[in-house]
Nucleic acid binder design. Structure first.
Length: 552
DNA sequence: TCGATCGGCGCC
DNA sequence: AAAGGGCGCCGATCGA
């Protein structure tokens, strides 16, 4: 397959470096304005575009109606290679290392603010690509690491396409929802009438005439003055006590949250032309999960999802994986008993059926505890039992926790490495053993050590789950393209949302059933890519709906 | 006055 | 005695 490295040069010129082995090795210089046509032409045969950073190239191509099949995102690949235990890091070292380390993705606002001086332009993508390929070739885990790099780059393409397309959003539906719950939109600086009324109720119930219910400290003082035994103002805490102020306070908090997180200001800021426009950031989380910036895209409350509505004549296909992380744990640990439980569409029910635990609730709380590191309470009590039934699965997360406590790196199935701990406890653990110290400090160190162990314990599972999801997305993206006939990305079935273990596809109605089928096939492919023939299933809940809220 | 931090809560 | 992983974002509050 041809491999073409793109590089920006000054004065609106782009160089295309066709690498050895390509049909016509050499360098082509072309005006930036002609890039889209060049890329479109070359896409008629298999080609891999190599570029410094997808966010610096792909949005303009998409805007010109050009979709690419595959790329290598050097920024994301560099970040993976810097941390993976599967690579010889000396092979990645070069003059530019610090620059590649520091390279940040671009968002639409960055581009407008800093159009001229981009640090990416001081980096040499041809040299970096050669280094990365040398690292991969020398890796003892070439195939897993290669899969991770390919998946990460595909994810970058998906993210750019989703960011460009936006999530269909009906501002009128959203506004009606706000008005129904909060009252009419108030003038700037004023509370909606419903909140004002609740605030008065709270003040009356607590005998605190001036109370600002938005101030946690003031609310706490008022509650304590009224004689309530609380140390914070969390909803869960308030639900435990009986007082006339509690009901209006809980109602106030719920509605105030809606107002501040997804109220009229949110609509003004993030919804344009019938689309919620956020920015997805692949690799934005150390574990490999995506992050997003703008509008809180990854924490969209169920409450406002009715406003996500497919276009006229289009549908959403919403799919999510049930219990992704325990399934991934079964696969990566090769735990046959847990994989057997995972054969059920409800893994927790599968654990009950096999006699491992008594109830579904026990199964769920026990597995969450195993993956998050709960050692006591209901979760902790399940651990001995789970360890007996699922020795390999539980052993894997326990070992990841112990390694973290020793200050060591752990890694996902495909080789994403955890960061090294920064605290003093880790320096001492690795270099000096246990120094004598004041009791206070030792307790503090132990607390941090255990916290880091919980992080590495979760890292291996969350990170491998993210790898499964990346493979799912990448394969689905190609399947959707092949379904679609002609036209640009957003004129065909295309991804509009991704949330760790859930996807939303926007599709012309007549293709919805086909999309649902491809979503399932892509999940099978992802399972095979990660776990080969090991029999662990990833069943999906798939819904064809008009509004996101109708799914699940 | 403005940036950093806190308490809280939404999602997985 | 407390002991649960990862995020983004808000208003209030603190502090330079």
């Amino acid at each position: 397959m041809d491999r073409i490295v793109l590089r920006r040069r000054g004065e609106g010129v782009v160089e295309a470096h066709e690498q050895a082995g390509s049909a016509s090795a050499g360098v082509v210089a072309l005006p930036a304005a002609e890039l889209a046509r060049y890329v479109r032409d070359r896409e008629s045969a298999p080609v891999r575009w190599v570029w410094d950073d997808t966010t610096r190239w792909y949005p303009a191509l998409l805007a010109a109606g050009v979709r690419v099949e595959r790329c290598t995102d050097l920024r994301l690949a560099h970040a993976v290679l810097r941390r993976t235990p599967f690579a010889d890091h000396d092979l990645l070292a070069g003059d530019d290392t610090a620059g590649w380390d520091a390279l940040q993705p671009e968002t639409a606002t960055d581009a407008a603010l800093f159009p001229l001086d981009d640090p990416a332009d001081r980096l040499d993508p041809v040299a970096e690509d050669e280094r990365q390929q040398a690292v991969l070739a020398a890796s003892p885990e070439r195939s897993r690491l290669g899969l991770l790099l390919a998946a990460e780059s595909s994810g970058a393409l998906v993210a750019a396409e989703m960011t460009a397309a936006g999530l269909p959003w009906r501002a009128d539906v959203h506004q009606r929802l706000l008005t129904d719950l909060l009252g009419p939109r108030p003038p700037a600086g004023h509370r909606p009438v419903v909140l004002e009324r609740l605030a008065e109720e709270i003040r009356a119930a607590l005998g605190a005439a001036e109370l600002n219910p938005d101030s946690p400290a003031a609310v706490l003082r008022a509650l304590q003055t009224a004689g309530l035994p609380v140390d914070d103002t969390r909803s869960w805490t308030l639900e435990q006590v009986d007082h006339p102020a509690v009901a209006p306070l809980l109602e106030y908090k719920k509605l105030a949250r809606l107002l501040s997180a997804n109220g009229w200001a949110w609509l003004d800021a993030w919804v344009r032309d019938g689309r919620f426009r956020s920015s997805f950031l692949p690799g934005g989380v150390v574990t490999g999960r995506w992050a997003a910036t703008g509008g809180g895209a990854l924490s969209m409350p169920a409450q406002v999802r009715p406003a996500a509505v497919a276009d006229e004549g289009w549908r959403f296909v919403v799919a999510d994986v049930a219990q992704l992380e325990p399934r991934v744990l079964a696969g990566m640990s090769g735990d046959a008993a847990m994989a057997e439980a995972a054969r059920a569409s409800d893994l927790y029910q599968g654990m009950v059926a096999s006699g491992a635990v008594a109830t579904r609730a026990d199964a769920k709380v026990g597995m969450l505890g195993a993956m998050y590191g709960a050692t006591r309470g209901e979760s902790g009590r399940m651990m001995p039992r789970l360890t007996r039934r699922y020795p390999r699965a539980i052993g894997l997360v326990e070992e990841a926790a112990r390694a973290g406590e020793r200050g060591e790196v752990v890694h996902t199935l495909l080789g994403r490495g955890s960061p090294l701990p920064a605290g003093a406890w880790a320096q001492r653990a690795v270099d000096l053993g246990e120094p004598p110290d004041e009791g206070d400090h030792r307790e503090d160190r132990d607390r941090r050590r255990r916290a880091w162990g919980r992080f590495t314990r979760n890292f291996v599972v969350q990170g491998t789950g993210a790898e499964w999801a990346l493979c799912w997305l990448a394969d689905l993206r190609n399947r959707l393209w092949r379904l679609g006939g002609t036209g640009r990305v957003e004129q065909r079935p295309h991804l509009v949302f991704f949330l760790h273990d859930e996807v939303v596809v926007h599709t012309p109605e007549h293709l919805a059933a086909d999309v649902a089928e491809e979503v399932r096939r892509a999940a099978v492919t992802a399972g095979r890519l990660l776990f080969g023939d090991f029999p662990v299933d990833f069943p999906l809940d798939v819904a064809v709906v008009g509004s996101w809220a109708e799914a699940g």
